[in-house]
Computed example of a mutant assay.
Amino acid sequence: MNSDNDEGAGSLASTTDQGPLVLNGIEIPKGTRRTLSLPVARRYTAGEVSLPVCVIHGRRPGPRLFVSAAIHGDEINGVEIVRRLLKRQLLPKLRGALIAVPVVNVYGFVEQTRYLPDRRDLNRCFPGSAKGSLASRLANTFLQEVAKKATHGIDLHTGSLHRTNLPQVRASLDVPGSEALARSFGAPVILDSAIREGSLRESVGELGVPMIIYEAGEALRFDELAIKAGLRGVLSVMRDLGMLPAVKQKSRRVEPFVAHGSSWVRAPESGILVTKLQLGARVARGQWLGTISDPLAEEEEPIISPTDGVLIGRTNLPLVNEGDAVFHIGVFERLDPVADEVDYFQDELTPDS
């Protein structure tokens, strides 16, 4: 690894001193690293449920970045990204503060499920309430004790329901600061996506805090490419924010391309999905994406692409019902450079065979 440049400051850098950093009533002094447990609720077995948080407060002023994972409890790639991030030897040189929350939905993580025990989706329960449902209380705790203490945010996700995603960043690019943060991450695709009501992104945006979502891989599976890309992306953001020293690049940075729209292609019939398409593939309008076949191989129904684009998500489950979302296609103004950049990105992060 190349040596670090202590004087390097990123293009998004800020040296504003934010004052004392206090979580759960505990002040985290500059130059310290603390692990905290933020109380959420009590189990009916009388044990407590708490939110694990690691705070690294640099000696010098700078931005305060929260990095969170497993808002959906079965989306575990982000947990590993945070774990690897916290092992980086560069962190003692940090400017500002890193607030790392590897598991937000602690209930779903333990049960290996997306949801909370009350079957609520935590990412539709923000800003939450201290006196609301279990999901609402957890959302409120995270917003008050983590998001409100930050100047920037990165939330780590994966695909759901047996779906896998090409590494991509999602953001609402009309929110000030979001596009610069998204480009800094260095994923090949940025999806300009609308903010959903009740999401963490909505509540954080109302605080004036720029935030992006990283999507990659599949739920309940470690995907090494997705993890490596996610860790590199978080570190890239931290360097561009001036939180970490700059380093000499071994290779050129990935140039992200913005998709201002996307389209889910759904199964026309129930049956067995047969396809050879891989994530990142370029597709053309009218192209056969795959077929739906019955187990006796007597009938086959083609799945046709409704648009030109790049495959940014797909189902991994070959058994589909009529209407299931099967392929997710990102729509771009220019396809050739996007496809080339995705190939470069995947080749760079895939170890030699």
Rank of each mutant, 00 (worst) to 15 (best):
I81G: 01
I81D: 06
V82H: 07
V82G: 12
R83V: 03
R84N: 06
L85H: 04
L85N: 02
L85F: 01
L86H: 01
K87S: 15
R88N: 01
Q89P: 05
L90V: 15
L90K: 02
L90A: 14
L90T: 08
L91K: 08
L91R: 07
L91Y: 07
K93D: 01
K93Y: 02
R95N: 14
G96Y: 03
G96V: 04
A97Y: 05
A97V: 12
A97W: 07
A97H: 09
A97F: 07
I99G: 11
A100V: 03
A100Q: 00
V101D: 10
P102L: 01
P102K: 00
P102S: 02
V103I: 15
V104L: 14
V104T: 13
V104Y: 13
G108K: 00
G108V: 04
F109V: 06
V110C: 10
E111M: 15
T113L: 07
R114N: 04
Y115I: 07
L116I: 06
L116A: 11
P117G: 13
R119K: 12
R120G: 10
R120Q: 15
D121H: 03
D121R: 02
D121I: 03
N123Y: 01
N123E: 04
R124D: 08
R124E: 06
C125W: 04
C125Y: 01
C125M: 10
P127S: 12
G128Y: 08
G128A: 09
S129H: 14
S129Y: 07
S129L: 02
S129A: 08
S129C: 08
A130C: 08
K131L: 08
K131F: 05
K131I: 09
G132I: 09
G132F: 09
S133Y: 09
S133N: 10
S133K: 04
S133M: 02
L134R: 12
A135G: 14
A135V: 05
S136V: 03
R137C: 05
L138T: 15
N140F: 15
N140A: 13
N140I: 03
N140G: 02
N140P: 00
T141L: 14
T141I: 13
T141W: 01
F142C: 09
Q144P: 02
E145P: 11
